[in-house]
Design a protein around this nucleic acid. Structure first.
Ligand code: MN
Ligand code: MN
Ligand code: ZN
Ligand code: ZN
Lengths: 139, 139
DNA sequence: TGCAGTATTTAGAACAGTTCTAAACTTCTT
DNA sequence: AAGAAGTTTAGAACTGTTCTAAATACTGCA
């Protein structure tokens, strides 16, 4: 007793099982890096560098597999802001992004503060899927 | 006098010279395809297919060179909406996009009708460059 | 008009990010 | 513990884009 438990006990094996994914060592290691601190924006390469430096190195192919599976399971969302490179975002809630060029840094901003009015109706035969606002800024 | 000249002259050699680019046959052929009808959204590959079918075929490297140069000269703007592929947009004015997945079609919509209010201020040390709104829709 | 100087084009090589292959290994169920 | 199914991995393959360097075209000036 007296030991501080995190308010949300992140049992990664359980969270992965709940998402329909076997909690392998590799997926658990990646999930820890992604989800145990605050929201993050990673690329496959940046996450691979991180996990290689850890106690449970993981191949690049597995990093790609896991990122795609986590995204398909709704644990991550993919953000496309720059040619030739995908970002994966642990914040799956409704929000938008600052993109700092040329650094390639992404920062969230809440969508509650932003009002978008007057969007035209989707083209015939299509349904709205998502509205992305990317505020591009430069140093 | 009195006759209104179109702001966009159809003299492609002159327009290219004005942009600081030598009016080579290849650039003129590409400029014609891009600019002589209404606004367009092309990829390097789609434009290469088009120009190959024309009287003045152009290598893929030249298509890439020209698209990048036209963009740098302000004749085109680059739009990143999907991983692994850049679109080039002949509409350089202020506007936003519908992106139809999974077709990969881009459609403009005017930014005048849209109001974006409450955007947060850019992070310290950065200046606003552009705000992109991408309305993702699905069939 | 011809020439020299510079810019451009090109095929193919190279590169970067991502996906695929198939053999080895792990996890799950019984 | 054993079998079945899912996962990981190294390396090959693939896609979109850029680079290389030799050949060609454009331009300004004689
Ligand atoms: Mn993907
Ligand atoms: Mn580019
Ligand atoms: Zn985000
Ligand atoms: Zn457009």
């Amino acid at each position: 007793m007296g030991v501080t438990m995190p308010t949300t006990s992140p049992d990664f094996p359980d969270r992965l099982r709940a998402a329909g994914l076997r909690p392998t060592r590799q997926r658990v290691a990646l999930a820890r890096l992604l989800f145990e601190s605050g929201h993050r924006h990673v690329t496959a390469e940046s996450l691979h560098v991180e996990v290689k430096a850890s106690r449970m190195p993981v191949s690049l192919a597995t990093v790609y597999n896991a990122l795609n599976q986590f995204r398909d399971a709704g644990l991550l969302r993919e953000v496309v802001v720059a040619p030739g490179r995908s970002y994966f975002d642990t914040n799956t809630g409704h929000h938008h992004h600052f993109f700092v060029e040329p650094d390639g840094e992404l920062h969230d901003f809440p969508s509650e503060k932003v009002t978008i009015a007057g969007l035209p109706t989707p083209p015939k035969g299509t349904r709205l899927a998502r509205v992305d606002v990317i505020v591009r800024v430069r140093r």
